[in-house]
C-alpha cells in the first residue's frame, strides 16, 4: 500500500517537478547566453542565483511573508464568517436573499485596485485595510458556495426530519449544515489564495511591512535586485499555495465522508 502510493503519486510528481526546474534553468540559459536578450535575468533568472539569494535573505522573506500571511488569514477568517452567516440568512429567508444578493454580486464588480486606496483612506491603517480587503475578497465565494451547499440537502432527507417533527434549527444543525460542508470548503479553497493576493495588493499600494512591500522596493531598485524581486513573487505564490493546502487539510479532517476521499467503492 505504502509502496504503491510512493510509486503512483509521489514519484511522478517528483519527476515532473524536477523536469520543470530543468526546463526553467535551460530556458534561462537560452535567454541569457544564446539569444542574448537584454535584461535576460529579469525575464527568467537562474535557479542557482535565486537559491543563493534565498539563503542570504530567507529570514527577511520569512518575517515579511508571515506579516502578510497573518493579516490575510485574519481577513479570511472574518470574511468566511460573514459569508457563512449571510448564506444561512439567505437560505432561511428568500426576502433576505432578494435584498442582499444583487448587492453581493455587484460588490464583486468593484476593482480591488480601486477599492484598496478608498479603504485605506477611510481607516488610515495598513494592517486594518489589508484585513478588510482580504475579508472582502473571501466573503463572496464563501457565501455563494455555502448557500448552494445549504440547499443541496435532498428533499427526502428533509422529509425524514419532518417525520421526526424536528424544529427548524435542528434541521439546520443535523442536516443542512453538514450537507453544506463540501460546498463551504470549495468556497474556502477558492477564497484562501485570493485573500493572500488581496493582502499583497494592499501592500503594494503603501504599507510598512509585508511581502508586497519588499516586492515593490526591489522592483524600484532595478536589475541589481532582480533575484530578490523574483523571490518575493515566488514567496507570494508560496503563501497562496500554503493557504490552499491548509484548507484542503481541514477539509479532509472534517469531511472524510466526501466522495473524493472515499477509499474503496464498497463491500458486498
Amino acid at each position: 500500500m505504502r509502496n504503491s502510493l510512493l510509486k503512483n503519486r509521489v514519484a511522478p510528481a517528483a519527476v515532473w517537478f524536477v523536469a520543470i526546474l530543468i526546463g526553467w534553468q535551460c530556458l534561462s540559459w537560452l535567454f541569457l547566453e544564446v539569444l542574448e536578450l537584454p535584461l535576460a535575468q529579469s525575464k527568467l533568472p537562474y535557479l542557482h542565483e535565486l537559491t543563493r539569494t534565498l539563503l542570504d535573505y530567507a529570514d527577511v522573506l520569512l518575517t515579511e511573508g508571515a506579516v502578510t500571511f497573518s493579516n490575510a488569514a485574519l481577513g479570511f477568517l472574518f470574511g468566511a464568517i460573514a459569508g457563512i452567516l449571510l448564506a444561512i440568512l439567505m437560505s432561511i429567508s428568500k426576502w433576505v436573499e432578494q435584498l442582499t444578493f444583487p448587492y453581493a454580486v455587484a460588490s464583486q464588480m468593484i476593482p480591488i485596485l480601486g477599492l484598496a486606496p478608498i479603504v485605506y483612506g477611510i481607516v488610515h491603517d495598513d494592517q486594518i485595510s489589508r484585513i478588510l480587503i482580504a475579508a472582502y475578497i473571501t466573503f463572496f465565494p464563501v457565501s455563494l458556495n455555502m448557500l448552494r451547499g445549504l440547499r443541496s440537502a435532498e428533499p427526502s432527507a428533509v422529509e425524514l426530519m419532518y417525520s421526526y417533527a424536528a424544529k427548524p434549527w435542528v434541521i439546520y444543525w443535523k442536516l443542512r449544515l453538514p450537507a453544506a460542508l463540501p460546498g463551504l470548503f470549495s468556497g474556502l479553497k477558492i477564497a484562501a489564495p485570493l485573500a493572500v493576493t488581496g493582502a499583497i495588493l494592499v501592500e503594494l499600494m503603501g504599507a510598512t511591512q509585508g511581502i508586497g512591500v519588499i516586492m515593490l522596493r526591489n522592483l524600484y531598485y532595478g536589475p541589481s535586485h532582480n533575484y530578490m524581486f523574483w523571490l518575493t513573487v515566488i514567496t507570494g505564490a508560496f503563501l497562496g499555495i500554503i493557504s490552499y493546502l491548509l484548507i484542503s487539510l481541514f477539509e479532509r479532517i472534517l469531511t472524510p465522508w466526501q466522495p473524493e476521499f472515499r477509499k474503496t467503492g464498497g463491500e458486498d
Partner: peptide, 19 residues
C-alpha cells in the same frame, strides 16, 4: 401521530446521512 413519533418511515431510497 407524527408529533408523538408513533410511526417510523422507510423511503424508496435509504436516505442515510453521508456524514
Amino acid at each position: 401521530a407524527r408529533l408523538a413519533q408513533k410511526y417510523g418511515i422507510v423511503f424508496q431510497s435509504p436516505v442515510l446521512y453521508d456524514w
